[in-house]
Each structure stands twice: as structure tokens, then as C-alpha cells.
Nucleic acid binder design. Structure first.
Lengths: 211, 211
DNA sequence: GTCTATACAAGGATAGAC
DNA sequence: GTCTATCCTTGTATAGAC
């Protein structure tokens, strides 16, 4: 499946179309992600994607065996991107950064991936709930791997209660993802959003831990 | 439009099929709400709804002029139900209840409407983002009226900053609604969920107010 | 790699009988 | 109020030429 395709140009093949033109499959995925993000899963047909790519529908089948495969590839990349972003943000922190600083950095990285960095990640969050069961299941391994990062982050601020932790991980990720439904980065300041969410969540989560 | 249809049996017409059988349009709406909630907007066809109602597709058109009208009716009722629930919960509070107590009561009422009370409300939250623009717009008046309640509730805990308030209203509602994507009332305790969300949000929102 | 032509299924909707 | 029959559109997918 498309998980095997390299998502970055191999430096071993720099000759022809250098860095300006993405590989065709990547270009198709870019278009698909943007349209899924904007209009939802069911509303986007292969016709629409092909048209924006300047080709006819059947030509897509040369690059992807089916719509399902294309969707799965887009969905998986969406999680990979946000996971890489959060991981990088945490790695960039000074070694002695405390739990609150790490949590704050993760919140900002996640929000930035969602609203500024990647159509893949925002498409993933927007359409996950619209997918048929089989497609959703295909994305679960990636999602679980990403959740593990947050389980780590939140473990220190919840008093060691595993039941509380098990609720807080989806609670926090859900609150962050929900911003996609109401925050418009073109009309509001992304930093102000991160300030607000960081302030409310940090205060709420570190109040004492548990209940 | 269906907004004109009474949603409760008129006591003036108690004769025939008393209280055991809902009016046909209400029965159809019940089925539609449940299916939309479970499987999303695009995945539910009129065939599916008609089949569960024990009729053929064209028979639906006797009760609703189009699929759009049916969906709009379901969506609007979903907001009416949660608004009534929250309003009732607030009215049941002692007159001297403080802002925190009022906020806590609203959080619990909203979560209960979402997870236990109404397929209409949960269907609304689940499929709103999947609807074509025109249908979404049809639900906005109801949504705005409901948001006004939360604007009132949150105004006291945000230090009077209108920008902060404008972000916190969708932030809180979004965090509550997001529970629909991960919390399963059949496997978890709804009260425990409300405790967690109440604790985190109350602590976070009342920390100081603003930033 | 991309095209034209086409098969095939599914969904919303209407006409008109009963 | 509900039915059968049917129309029309749209969407995924395949065959085979270029």
C-alpha cells in the first residue's frame, strides 16, 4: 500500500524535476487533503480531485488503486505530521523543562499543526468521524501511537490515577481538535488561541490532579 | 416547514392512538436522528430510514417534502432539546447559586443531553460538520440562541474581557461536544465523566480569568 | 501516464394507482 | 397514507486505445 511510498524526494534522484514539482502521488494527496478538510469526506469525489489535478478520473487509478487507498494514505500522513511536530517541539525544549512547560509546548505544536502547518492533520481530524468503519480502523494504529505521547505528558499531572489519566488524554486532544470547528486562523490570532487553551487547560489539569 | 409541526401531542386530541404511538413524522424523525447519530449524514439514505419505519422510500415524501427538510427538522430539535435541558437545570438551582455552581450544573446538563437524553442532540453535534453549507446555515439561529446561554454563564468568570469570552464559549462547548467522539456511556460512568470535565474546566476557567 | 467510452450501483425524487 | 414503477444524477471503477 501507499505507506511504502517515500513521502520525501529521495536525494538519490535529484536529476529531472528538482525540488519545484512534487511527485504526482504527493500532489494528488495534497489536493485530496485540502478538499477533504474543506468539504468533508462524502462531498469530495474522485472527479473533484482529478479535476483540480488537471486530469480525468480514471487517471487517478494509475497512482492509487482505489479511493479507499487514497483516503487511508492521507489520513495516516495527517497523524504522522502532527506527531513529528509535537515530538520536535518537545525535543527542542531545554533538558530541565518541567511537566507544565512540556505540556504547553505540546499544546502549541498540536494547534499549529492543525491550523497552520498541515492540511493532512486538519483533514484527518475533520473527516475521521465521517469515514466508514473499515477506513477508521485503518487509521487507529497511527492514532494510538500519537496518543501514547500525550499519555506520557499527562501522566505527571494527574496524581497517578490511571482512570483519570485514561479520560484526560482524549479530553485534552478532543478540546484541541474541536478548535478546528470554530477557530478561523484567517480572522483570529493563532497565538492568542494557544494562550487561551494553554492557560485554561494547564490551570485545570494542574489544579490538583484527579478528584 | 416542519418547525410549525407540534413536537408534543396536543392534549386537545387524545382520542385515537393515545400516548403509546408517536405521530408518524415524530417516529420518522426519531429513526433518522438515531441513524444519523450512529452512522453519519452521508451514510444514511432515505431507503434506510424508510425501511426501519416499515415503509417504502416514496412514502416518506408524504411526511417530509425532501431529505433536506427532514434533516433540518432533526438538527433544530437537537438544539432545542439541549437548550431546554440546560435552562431547566439552571432554573432548578437555588436562587443564590454562584457562578461556579451554575457553570457546573450547565456542564452536567449538556453532557447528559449528549450522552443519555437525546439522539437529536448527539446527532446534531455529530453531523453538523458533515452537512452542506446550506443545511448548516439553517441550523445557525438555533445554535446562536443556545450559545447565548453560555455567553451569559461564562461572562462572570473571564474578567470582563470580551475577546477572552468570545473564545471561551466555543472552547467550552467544543470540549463538551468532543466527548461524543471518545466517551461511551455503555462502558464508562457518565457521572465520572462529568466530574472530570467539571473539575478541569472549572479550575481552568476560574484560575484568574483571562491572561 | 493519460485518455475515451462505458459498465454498474446507489441515492433522491416524481407520477400515478390503490 | 402507502404502494409500484420509473427517471435522473452522481460516483466508483474497469477496458482498452494512444
Amino acid at each position: 500500500m501507499s505507506a511504502l511510498r517515500p513521502s520525501v524526494q529521495s536525494p538519490a534522484t535529484p536529476s529531472k524535476k528538482a525540488a519545484n514539482q512534487a511527485a504526482r502521488p504527493d500532489q494528488i494527496m495534497d489536493i485530496a487533503a485540502r478538499q477533504f478538510r474543506a468539504r468533508g469526506y462524502a462531498a469530495v469525489s474522485l472527479r473533484d480531485i482529478a479535476h483540480e489535478a488537471g486530469m480525468r478520473t480514471p487517471s487517478l487509478y494509475y497512482h492509487f488503486p482505489s479511493k479507499d487507498d487514497l483516503v487511508i494514505a492521507v489520513m495516516n500522513r495527517g497523524i504522522v505530521v502532527v506527531r513529528d511536530a509535537v515530538t520536535a517541539a518537545l525535543a527542542a525544549l531545554p533538558a530541565d523543562a518541567g511537566p507544565s512547560a512540556r505540556l504547553d509546548a505540546a499544546i502549541r505544536a498540536h494547534l499549529r499543526a492543525l491550523h497552520a502547518l498541515s492540511d493532512y492533520t486538519s483533514a484527518n481530524v475533520r473527516i475521521f468521524g465521517q469515514l466508514p468503519e473499515a477506513l477508521r480502523r485503518a487509521n487507529l494504529p497511527e492514532r494510538r501511537a500519537y496518543q501514547a505521547i500525550w499519555t506520557d505528558l499527562l501522566a505527571t499531572t494527574c496524581g497517578g490515577d490511571p482512570d483519570v489519566l485514561a479520560m484526560r488524554v482524549p479530553l485534552v486532544i478532543g478540546a484541541l481538535n474541536a478548535t478546528l470547528e470554530w477557530f478561523d486562523p484567517a480572522r483570529g490570532d493563532l497565538d492568542a488561541l494557544a494562550d487561551q487553551l494553554g492557560a485554561v487547560l494547564l490551570a485545570g489539569l494542574t489544579a490538583q490532579g484527579g478528584r
